[in-house]
Amino acid sequence: MYTKTYHWFFAGAVALAAGCDEAALADAGDDEVALRPYACPTWKCGFNSAEVNGRSIRELNLDGAPNGDGMRITGFLAPAGLLGNYRLEVEHDALVARNASGQTLRGAQLIGATILVQAPGLLSLPVPISVLGYQEIDSWAEGAPKVPTYALLYPDLAALLGVRNVCNGDLLDTVASAATVIGGETYDLDDKTVNPDRSRWLTIACAGSAAAKMRLLGYGPQSSATTPAQRQATLKMVTADYCGGGESYTQNGTEVHWANAEGTVAPESFAELGELEAVWTEDGALCLGSPRIAGTLTDCSLPSCAGLSVADGEWVTYVAAN
């Protein structure tokens, strides 16, 4: 059970490797899983950014506007047997569906529902994404409610089982791959920044992505009282964006411990903390002690963390003890 204190085996992203573009908010791929020096549970390592047939659905507009990859929602179908024209919404960073009569579907009631998405082009047909699993998992923050997660699958004749999870998880256990959702906000993959006040947009955050970790840490925009600045500081911390310009200085399997200023997240009492890594703000690292990857050379000059603490920022991180 994840509560106030926990031990994190930090997982970076496929794009955290040199030369990749989507460093911060993507997840570890199969080629990197084998490189992990630690056992890393799904929500700590996870899968790639949400996509359908190679096009990103990481962010979608509830009113059907196309995202940056041209993908758009074209319809929503309630589970079989339920009548009524239901409309998909996001409330408290969770999916809900309502019809004109005021009936509401949420949680496990959405299993069997279908979200239709369509790629650009006159000959493109809608692709059904089915909600085939629902689970509430413990938040990583003390006092925070459980986090809703969804298994989202779409038909793919080229896949081993004829279906594929939008999070590109284990092909033999497609329902095990899951995502959480974040309402009213999207995230810039290059700069590791928050795009707030996008009221009709949702982010599909696959297990292990920086956005999913942010949500599990209790920093969802609709499900917490956090500010965009606090959420951006969380993204900078999760992705080790020391300089604040979007470059990540982490890799899969790197162990790190963290705590926030509010005290809802802290290292486990038995964790052996190494040296202080950094104090984090929305602009990146306020200071830098020992980088989580030994020998890291940053493209910016940061002061020592001597005399600074989590009270000076939103987060503080520590490397693992040798």
Score class of each variant (00 low, 15 high):
Gly12Lys: 01
Val14Asp: 00
Glu22Trp: 07
Ala23Lys: 00
Leu25Ser: 11
Glu32His: 12
Pro37Tyr: 12
Ala39Tyr: 09
Trp43Pro: 10
Lys44Val: 05
Cys45Ile: 04
Asn53Asp: 05
Asn53Arg: 01
Ser56Leu: 06
Ala65Ser: 12
Met71Gly: 02
Phe76Gln: 01
Pro79Asp: 12
Asn85Cys: 04
Leu88Lys: 00
Asp93Phe: 03
Ala97Glu: 03
Ala100Ile: 13
Ala100Arg: 06
Ala119Met: 12
Ile129Phe: 00
Ser130Ala: 05
Glu136Ala: 08
Glu136Leu: 03
Glu136Pro: 00
Ile137Met: 08
Asp138Glu: 01
Asp138Arg: 14
Gly143Ala: 11
Val147Asp: 04
Val147Phe: 04
Leu153Ser: 05
Ala158Lys: 06
Arg164Tyr: 09
Leu171Arg: 10
Asp173Gly: 10
Thr174His: 06
Ala179Gln: 00
Val181Trp: 00
Glu185Val: 10
Glu185Thr: 07
Thr186Asn: 04
Thr186Ala: 09
Lys192Thr: 06
Thr193Ser: 15
Thr193Asp: 12
Pro196Tyr: 08
Pro196Ala: 06
Ser199Ala: 14
Arg200Phe: 11
Ala210Phe: 09
Ala210Lys: 02
Met214Ile: 07
Leu217Asp: 11
Pro221His: 02
Thr226Ser: 15
Ala229Arg: 14
Met237Cys: 02
Thr239Ser: 11
Ser248Glu: 00
Asn252Ser: 14
Thr254Pro: 02
Thr254Asp: 04
Glu255Phe: 10
Asn260Phe: 14
Thr264Trp: 15
Phe270Lys: 14
Ala271Arg: 04
Leu273Ser: 02
Gly274Arg: 03
Glu275Arg: 11
Glu282Trp: 09
Asp283Val: 15
Leu286Gln: 13
Cys287Tyr: 05
Leu288Gly: 04
Gly289Val: 05
Gly307Met: 15
Gly313Ala: 02
Thr317Gln: 03
Thr317Cys: 02
